[in-house]
Design a binder for these strands. Structure first.
Lengths: 133, 133
DNA sequence: CAGGATCCGATCGGATACTG
DNA sequence: CAGTATCCGATCGGATCCTG
């Protein structure tokens, strides 16, 4: 079931890409976005809860991604006016559909990345700590 | 059709994550990987052909990703011993399955990222040229 | 043509401090 | 608690040069 009509302008990693496909890639080609969405798929989450789940991601990074997801309408921010303040984030109906993407990625991972195969870490240069351990 | 069994250890963007899900996210949470795979889905491609398709990506970046994809067994490298040298890359049977992921991403993009909605570019700080135009 | 090696600017993302 | 602002080191990725 290939979409098979995507050959025109795939290019351009930088810039808004203008094309929806490109935008999708720019959005989903980000580890943080994927991880955040994956967490939100399990239900509403508070800011610090997310932060913890994501392995103490810096608040800067987290709020940055949440803002993006919110602006795109995939995440809804709910602030309860109380002391101490409480803010919950949850996927909108649109956002829920990101579940399909995550699901496919998960399936793929379990199917093809379970073995103790090599584990390249995307990064290059020569700086990178142990991968095995 | 949710996998619905992914709550244990989502965390950790850095490090090999050890878990297949994490590895999948680390691999697919990369714009270049996605773009390269997308191109290869259309058939075998030569190094410079890919380079051109990807908007003149630097050879460093391209070969780095291709190496990763090759090590993981998703891409097959075929070098023809001739002058000038010719090298073709194509997805392996395993790699073909990345098509599902790309397909879902494409679908998602067309469905939810077509409008002239805001176009956050993931990046933060204050440095970023025009997005509108 | 295919790619490895380097240099280096641009960006990312964590740590810290501060506010409502 | 939920962020924002800032400083700054770590990494990324492009440009360039070089080899087979």
């Amino acid at each position: 079931m290939r979409t098979s009509d995507h050959q025109s302008s795939v290019t351009m990693p930088e810039a808004c890409t203008a094309t929806p496909i490109g935008r999708a890639i720019r959005l989903l080609g980000d580890v943080w976005i994927l991880l955040i969405v994956m967490n939100l798929l399990q239900g509403p989450r508070r800011f610090n809860a997310l932060r913890t789940s994501l392995g103490n991601i810096s608040s800067k990074t987290l709020s940055q991604r949440l803002k993006v997801l919110e602006e795109l309408g995939f995440v809804q921010r709910n602030a309860f006016l109380e002391i101490p303040p409480r803010v919950e984030y949850h996927l909108t109906t649109q956002g829920q559909e990101l579940g399909d993407v995550i699901a496919v990625i998960e399936q793929f991972g379990k199917k093809h990345l379970s073995g103790s195969e090599t584990c390249p870490s995307i990064s290059d240069d020569t700086t990178q700590s142990a991968c095995s351990e």
